[in-house]
Design a binder for these strands. Structure first.
Length: 465
RNA sequence: GGCGUCGUACUCAAGCGGUAAGAGAGCAGUCUGCAAAACUGUUAUGCACCAGUUCGAAUCUGGUCGACGCCUCCA
């Protein structure tokens, strides 16, 4: 069997994946804070995690994948104030949109999608445990994590807190014992949403929800925790501190999570896509123009730990490649395949995926097999290669459409299909009479209607441009 | 200031010690009335630059230049 290797942020090395329990793999990926449309950068960790989950399901008998919805956060409160809409209305709307957008990218729903507001009790319990263990303290109605009480602080992100302070731009709040201390619980005033707690009416600090939801739904330790690289510090560092602190563990971050995987950022014109730069592109901006599969393919065309330059051209290139693969599948449309074999991924591809999810190389292998399929002579060959292509497509989460549907064959956006078929008949009549001027005239007319035609041995087919 | 990543053809992008995958785009040819599609061939004596290690380096080491990320909300 192929051994899965993953780059573990905790050790900064590619390691053999050794599960806590090989009969049940447990994985958590940070989901969105729902206060706005999901952007294409949000899609990367979701697609990477989805791919990893599919691979884990292929390799192991049982996988539980948890990805949360953060529906309480200062950004949401701010959005509510700005739009004068109730918080619940905002979070419900954008949670729904997020899930629709991910679905359009072929991301399978997580097994469990917990909401932060359903886990307030668990968060309060964690804070109480941290206070009991002496790694959190109450100050001016806040509860803070005492970073000096936790030896392994900085281990995940590979930084020394002392060194950070020199160039740090963080303004130190009066209630902090150490500038590195971070908020676990904060007071809610006026109209702020909040819950009763031993420390008064308030709400959780940012990092707490993931510690609570991951432990509650998966138990500790669990195997894999994922997210974007920009979350390594402070979000994930603090998650580790909280979860270990609540369990009285000072040194070993692995009592929480065994493998941390982080995807690199999407760049626009060489710069990270970010709110402050205003170069955000929402998934909705693209799904009007391109099938979600194109976006997924474009995201997989680079390695997940490498920053990916996101341009219209890279999307177009992904589209062209998929078009070609679908054309080959169209060619072998009538070749019957054995559904059982569709579950067998060729070793060459499995190797790539097991090597820290090397999707660009896996896609290269896919292309090689597609080329062979295109040239295959015998039915046996065609059947075998088609099965391989479908198997690879299934694990990569692509090629979900029928070729006709994808290529737009025999489908028009309007209700003018009869007219198109009539014109094609007229053109073939003209061709038969060798009246090529007229034939070309009709083709030009079809082109102007947005219809491409192709003369094949089986007759003329047409498709939307 | 601290920590880290990257620089491979026109474009995207693997390879990470054994002589440059794959895709897109382009060009030429075959085929077809012409197109389209398909097929065949073709596009890096070289992997930012300079030294070094080695029988051998895009791959290792040191240096130079350039781009970017985290340390602040961020996927």
């Amino acid at each position: 069997m192929n051994i899965l290797k993953l780059h573990n942020t905790l050790t900064r090395q590619k390691e053999d994946f050794v599960p806590v329990d090989k009969n049940h793999i447990k994985m958590y990926t940070c989901g969105p804070t729902v206060y706005n449309y999901a952007h294409i950068g949000n899609a990367r960790p979701a697609v990477v995690s989805d791919l990893l989950v599919r691979l884990l399901r292929y390799l192991y008998p049982k996988v539980t994948y948890v990805s949360n919805i953060t529906d309480i956060d200062d950004k949401i409160i701010q959005a509510s104030k700005e739009t004068k809409k109730p918080i619940a209305e905002i979070t419900e709307k954008f949670e729904k949109i997020y899930n629709e957008d991910m679905s359009s990218l072929g991301v399978l729903p997580p097994d469990i999608q917990p909401r932060a507001t359903d886990h307030i009790d668990d968060m309060i319990k964690l804070v109480e445990d941290m206070i009991d263990n002496g790694c959190a303290y109450e100050s001016e109605h806040h509860v803070l994590f005492d970073v000096n009480s936790y030896n392994a602080y900085g281990k995940l992100s590979g930084r020394d807190i002392e060194d950070q302070l020199a160039g740090s731009r963080v303004e130190v709040a009066s209630y902090k014992k150490d500038p590195g201390d971070f908020v676990l619980w904060k007071p809610s005033v006026d109209d702020d949403p909040g819950w009763d707690s031993p420390w008064g009416f308030g709400r959780p600090g940012w990092h707490l929800e993931c510690s609570a939801m991951s432990e509650k739904n998966l138990g500790l330790p669990f195997d894999i925790h994922g997210g974007g690289m920009d979350l390594i510090f402070p979000h994930h560092e603090n998650e580790v501190a909280q979860s270990c602190g609540a369990h009285g563990e000072q040194n070993d971050p692995k009592i929480f999570v065994r493998y941390w995987i982080h995807n690199a950022m999407l760049n626009i014109g060489g710069k990270k896509m970010s709110k402050s730069l205003g170069n955000i592109f929402y998934i909705r901006d693209y799904t009007d123009k391109y099938p979600g599969e194109v976006l997924r393919f474009a995201l997989m065309s680079g390695h997940y730990r490498q920053s990916l330059n996101w341009t219209d051209k890279s999307i177009e290139q992904a589209h062209s490649t998929l078009n070609r693969i679908y054309r080959v599948l169209k060619k072998v449309e009538d070749v019957k395949i054995d559904e059982n074999n569709v579950n067998l991924i060729p070793d060459s591809v499995l190797e790539c995926l097991c090597d820290d999810l090397n999707t660009p190389e896996a896609l290269a292998k896919l292309n090689e097999i597609v080329n062979k399929l295109s040239k295959a002579k015998t039915d046996g060959e065609k059947k075998q290669l088609k099965e391989q292509v479908i198997a690879i497509a299934n694990i990569l989460g692509i090629l979900n459409e029928s070729p006709d549907n994808w290529l737009g064959i025999g489908k028009s956006s309007g209700s003018n299909e009869d007219e198109i078929n009539q014109l094609i008949d007229d053109r073939n009549e003209a061709r038969k009479l060798k009246d090529f001027n007229k034939a070309d005239e009709i083709r030009d007319k079809l082109t102007n209607m947005g219809i491409d035609i192709e003369d094949t041995p089986d007759g003329t087919i047409w498709r939307k441009k």
